[in-house]
Every structure is written in structure tokens, then in C-alpha cells.
Amino acid sequence: MTTLPADTILSVRDLRTWFTTKRFTAKAVDGVTFDLKRGETLAVVGESGSGKSVTSLSIMGLVSKPGGIAGGEILFRDRKERVHDLAQLTPKGFRAMRGREIAMIFQEPMTSLNPLYTVGDQIGEMISLHEPVSRQEARKRALEMLKHVEIPDAENRLDDYPHQMSGGMRQRVMIAMALACNPSLLIADEPTTALDVTIQAQILDLLRRLQKQFGMSILFVTHNLGVVAEIAHEVVVMYAGRVVEQAPVNDLFARQKHPYTKGLLACTPHAKRDITEAGVRKALYSITGSVPPITDLPPGCAFAPRCDLAVEACRAVPPALMEAGAGRLSRCLRSNEL
């Protein structure tokens, strides 16, 4: 089996997840490569349809037909330091992995919990599924988890049903469920998108604190660059199923080496920057056009039709992911000029 550096917990290498029907093949993820280090957070950023969610579902083995992994490796190091290739894992092997080694939280906290069971029941179910514990023990651990995710008055909240809780609380319960068996990798698929801004900040805070406490690595999927700045160590920017830029978070915000990332950042509303000295509100920048359909990508760079910097060479062949400074990569021919 391929080797994995000791400090790396997850290594996605040339992952290709394709959806094949009789009429077309949609390459939702096409040659994605990145590494996630132990105890760190990697953010995967991109618009809708960029392939970021499919990437995370591929890691979980949850891509449903007609989709499937067409190639590449997903190397994952478990608690016992064994390295698995998740791309080759059987459904049975995956079941042993999910919940115990890798856990996932979702976008919709309002509907991610079963309305018919108390939250204590649902956290307890997770624990007793993966570990041989008694009912009382599972309940005790569920209570501990509720305290870990900072739900006030946890003793009484344990017997609440999901409908008795707010969205933020339910997301906390989801996090408690996900972390109940102490997984080494947490995949968070836009966990704050459905929440109020103030609650978002609280949840991000909580995740950061829990990461220190439990030591898990987080793969954070989002389209919100503000959230990325808050939580990530390393950032991967995806466009049309490919990685277009990768950099440590501070470097990325200091200087973007791909016009798409630059555009994304310019699109973020900014309280002070957007008002001129005369007090006039400037129009918010937007990237012209939209993401091309994944079944009909242009021959060259997928971003070329929307790019201000595109030249003839960009439209000819798809550019490769190239080094663009220390520890960072860019899929742009003109990254030096940025």
C-alpha cells in the first residue's frame, strides 16, 4: 500500500468521481488532490456545482448511483495507524469506518435529527452502535457530550425532542453525535450555512475548541470565505470539479494566485471598503457569467470564459496545477502576474 507521511491523516490523490449515464458523463470531481494534516482544518471552497460536496461524499463512500469513483486514491490513517484506501473500500468496510473513524455533519440541522427520538437517545444510539456499552453508560456519555458542545442545562436537555431546540442547538447536538465516538476525521459539509451569523460564529468557536480538545482533523466544506478565514489552516479552492488554487489560509487572503479566487474575494461584501469617502455605496463586484455545465466544459481552462486575464494559451489546453510560491499551488498560466 502506498505510504502516507506520519503527520498526514487524509490524502486525496487524483480523485475522480464521475456520474455516468447513457447520454453523458458528468465529471463532478476530476483529478482532485490534497492532504489533510493531523489536528488541522482544511477548507474546501467553491461555488455550487464546483464538486466540493461530491468530494466529501466520496470520502464517506456516500456517492449514490449513477455516480461512482472512477479513479484515484483516498488514503486515510485510522486510530491504529493503519492506512486504508477509501476509494477501494467495501460497503462493509465503510460501515466500520463511518461514525467511528470518520464522522460527518450536515448543512440542515433542522432536519438532520430524527424527530421521534430524544437527543439523548440519538447520541446514545451512536455510542452503543460502535462500542459495547450498557444503556446507562451510553446515556452518561451522551450527557457528557452535550456538556462538551456547551448546551446549557444539559441534564434536562437530554430528554428533549429535536423540535424543542433551535437550529444552533440542533447543530450542537449533531456535533455531539458526530464526535461521540471520538473520530479522527470530521467532515463538515457547510455546517453553518443555515444558521444566523451570530450562531455561526458560536458554532465555529465551538468546533475550534473541540478540535483542540479531541485532536480531530476537520475537512470543512463551505462557500463562505469569511468562515474559511475563521477556521481553516489550509484552503483548497475548487472550480468545475478541479482544484484551482491551494494555499495556507493567511497566504491566500494576503495574495490570491488564481483570478477565480481573487474574484471570489472581491465578491464578499465589506462594510467599510464598499463605501467611498464621499459616502457613496460602490456596486459589489461580481464574476461575470456562471459556472459552465460540467458536461460541457471548454477545451482550455474551465474559468477562461469568465476570466479578465485569459489569453489564447488559456483557451487551448487545460493548464496544470503548478507551484506558485512556497507551499502553494495554482492552476493559472499567469499566476506570476497576480
Binding site: A96, M97, R98, M104, L129
Partner: peptide, 24 residues
């Protein structure tokens, strides 16, 4: 989503069928 969430957290299919689907 709670069925997908259950699957993502490693709940076996028979348990999902009984606890999460049938009960509802």
C-alpha cells in the same frame, strides 16, 4: 437528511430501516 446523517455516522441499514424509517 436524518437518514443520510444516520448513514454518514455508520448506522447499519437494518437499524436505519426500523428506527429511522419504520418509526416515522
Amino acid at each position: 437528511p436524518y437518514v443520510e446523517a444516520a448513514r454518514a455516522l455508520g448506522v447499519p441499514t437494518p437499524v436505519i430501516l426500523v428506527r429511522h424509517v419504520l418509526r416515522n
